[in-house]
Design a protein around this nucleic acid. Structure first.
Lengths: 326, 326
DNA sequence: TTGAAAGCGATACCAC
DNA sequence: GTGGTATCGCTTTCAA
C-alpha cells in the first residue's frame, strides 16, 4: 500500500502539504491540491487509520460491555448506542462479558491501553468501585444508578413504572404475586428496586416461595413456572423479568393445560406483544443513545441521567411504521 | 501515562529489554525481569495498543456489516461472530448500514485504511462486484451464496428446509399460500430461492397477488395481513420472512376476529415459539461463527461453506438450559 | 504557501 | 543477555 511519503515524493510536494491537503487543514494552493489529489488517485492511496490514531491519540471507537446480546434488553441498549455512535462518526466495539469479572477487567485494561476512547457498561459483575478506579484512564458510563459513586450514569427510572404496575394490581384486588429475577437482590439492582417498590405499595415483601431467581431464559422461565405451580396453588399473577421469559412461563401452563395466572412482562418485546400481556417499557433504546452521548462529552464532573419508564397495559402492536420496539 | 521509554529510563535497562520483558520474547535475565516488572508496576504502566497496532500492522478487530440489529436474524449471526471472535482473542466492531450503499462503501474504505483486520458482510445493498474489489485490502466474508464471485462465503442451505416445508404443505393439500419478503426477488437472494423452491415443489410460481414485499417489521406484517385479507379470501397459509413478522400478521387476524390462516415463520425466534407456529431455522448462530473463523484464516484462495438448515414443525420451547435460540 | 523535523509509542533486527 | 536504532505512517509546530 502506498503511504503519504509516496504521495509526497511522486507529487513533488512535502509530506506536510500532502497531509494538509488530505485533511483540508491549513493553506494549500489550488495547484498543489490538484496535483496532489491526482497522485493520490493514481496511487489508490488512503491514509492509514492506525497511524493517524497513534498521532492524534484517538481511536473513534467506543467499547460497549454487555453480558451477551441474546437478551433483547441488551440488543435494545446496543441499538441506541449504535445509532448515536453512528451519528457522531464513532464505531462501537462489542465487549461480551457473561458477567465474568476477569473478562470485564480485561476490557478495563483495554481502555487503559487506549484500545477505545471510552467505555459504556450496560451491566457488570465486578463491583462499581473497580469501575470507578478505571475512570482515570478514559470516560466510563454505566447504565444503572451509580448512587454516590463518581461514575457517569444513564439509567431507567423504574420505580415510577413499577409503582403504577403494582397499584394497578392492587386495585384489581390481586394479592398473590410471584417474581422472577435473573440475579438475586443485592447482586442485581433490578431485583432490589422491584421488591422495594412492591413493599412500598403492598406494605410487605412477597413471601420467599414467590420469589424465584436464576431465571434469564424462556426455558428457565418454563421451569420456574413448574416450581411455582407446585409451591403456590393460589397464584394470581406472575411478574416476570422479561417478555421472552414470560413466554416460557406461559408455555408451561399451556402445555399442561393449567389455568393461566395473570402475566406481566418487561422490556416491551415482540413476544410480549404476541401474547398481549402488560409490560414495563424502560426505554432501553433511549438509554443507550444517552449513554453514548455522555461518554463523548468533555468530562467536567460526573453526570447522572434518569430516563423515564412506562407501564404498558394495553400491549398491542405499534402500527407506526419503522418505530416498532427498537 | 507512562511509556515504555519511562520504564526503560527508570529501570536502567534499554527499551528493547523492556519490550522483551513485556512480551516474554527473547532472552531476559531473571534479575532484569524482576527490576523491570517492579518499575512497570510502580509506574502503573501498560503498553499502548495503538502504537503496538501500528508496529505490528494488526488491530485484532473484525468489522461486521449488518443492516441493523433490530432483526433477530442479525443478532443471531452477530452472536455467532462474537463468541467465535472472543475465543480467538479478537473483538468485533459493529457496522450498521441500513442497506445504504454509501454507508457500506464507507466501511469498505475503512477496511482499506486498516481500521480492522477483516470484514464480515451479513447482508448488503451494494453489488457483490464492489465487495470483490475490496477483497485485496483485507479478507472479506459474506453470509450468503456468492456464486461464482471470488468472495468467501458462509451461508445457509435453505433449499432443503424450504423443500421440506413446501412438501409438508403440499401433502396437507394446501394450495393457496401467500409469501412475505423484505426485499423483492432479484435484490434479495432469500426471495429468489424461496420462490424457486416453491415452483419446484408446486410446479408453478405463486400468483402475484400472493407475494408481498417490503415487509420487514411486525407492524409491516400487520399491514400485509390487511392487504392479503382483501386480495385473497381463500388464503390457506402465509409463509412469512420471520417469526416476529408473522406475529404482526397474526395480530391483524386476531384483532379483527378473522379466521386465522396457517402460519409459517422463519428464524426460530421466541415470538414464533410463543404462538407455536412451524418455522425455518437457518442456524444463523453457526453461520456467524464460521464466518469469523473464515475471516481469520490465512487466505489461500476463496472458500464457500454451506450450513444446514431445518424445518421445525413442532415448534416448542427448547428445555435444554442455556441453549435456547442463540 | 510550503517544508523540515520532532513527536506518537511501540516492535524487531542486528550488533556487541 | 542486552542495547542502539530504524521503522510503522501519520499529525503538527515552527521557520522560512
Amino acid at each position: 500500500m502506498a503511504t503519504i511519503r509516496d504521495v509526497a515524493r511522486i507529487s513533488g510536494y512535502s509530506i506536510s502539504t500532502v497531509s494538509r491537503t488530505i485533511n483540508q487543514s491549513g493553506y494549500v494552493s489550488k495547484t498543489a491540491q490538484l496535483q496532489i489529489n491526482r497522485v493520490i488517485h493514481q496511487l489508490d492511496y488512503v491514509p492509514n487509520a492506525i497511524a493517524r490514531d497513534l498521532s492524534t491519540g484517538k481511536t473513534h471507537k467506543i467499547g460497549a460491555i454487555l453480558p451477551h446480546i441474546r437478551d433483547p434488553y441488551f440488543s435494545k441498549i446496543l441499538n441506541g448506542i449504535m445509532d448515536a455512535a453512528f451519528a457522531n462518526n464513532y464505531s462501537v466495539i462489542l465487549l461480551p462479558s457473561e458477567y465474568d469479572e476477569a473478562q470485564e477487567m480485561h476490557y478495563l485494561e483495554q481502555l487503559k491501553r487506549k484500545e477505545y476512547d471510552g467505555l459504556i457498561v450496560t451491566s457488570h459483575g465486578i463491583p462499581l468501585e473497580r469501575l470507578e478506579k478505571y475512570n482515570q484512564y478514559g470516560p466510563i458510563v454505566c447504565c444503572e444508578d451509580t448512587g454516590a459513586k463518581q461514575l457517569n450514569a444513564v439509567f431507567s427510572d423504574r420505580e415510577s413504572a413499577y409503582t403504577t404496575a403494582f397499584n394497578w394490581l392492587k386495585q384489581k384486588q390481586i394479592k398473590r404475586i410471584a417474581f422472577l429475577f435473573s440475579r438475586r437482590a443485592g447482586v442485581s439492582a433490578t431485583s432490589s428496586i422491584t421488591l422495594k417498590t412492591f413493599a412500598q405499595v403492598y406494605g410487605d415483601l412477597p413471601p420467599d416461595n414467590l420469589v424465584i431467581t436464576g431465571v434469564s431464559t424462556p426455558a428457565e422461565g418454563y421451569f420456574a413456572a413448574k416450581t411455582l405451580n407446585k409451591q403456590a396453588t393460589d397464584l394470581q399473577y406472575i411478574f416476570g423479568n422479561g417478555d421472552d421469559i414470560i413466554s416460557g412461563v406461559r408455555q408451561y401452563y399451556v402445555d399442561h393445560q393449567l389455568p393461566l395466572p395473570g402475566l406481566i412482562g418487561q422490556g416491551h418485546q415482540i413476544s410480549g406483544v404476541a401474547i398481549g400481556i402488560p409490560t414495563i417499557d424502560p426505554h432501553f433504546y433511549t438509554i443507550g443513545g444517552q449513554a453514548l452521548q455522555l461518554v463523548l462529552e468533555p468530562t467536567d464532573g460526573v453526570r447522572k441521567i434518569k430516563v423515564h419508564s412506562d407501564f404498558i397495559i394495553n400491549n398491542k402492536i405499534d402500527l407506526t411504521p419503522n418505530t416498532f420496539i427498537k
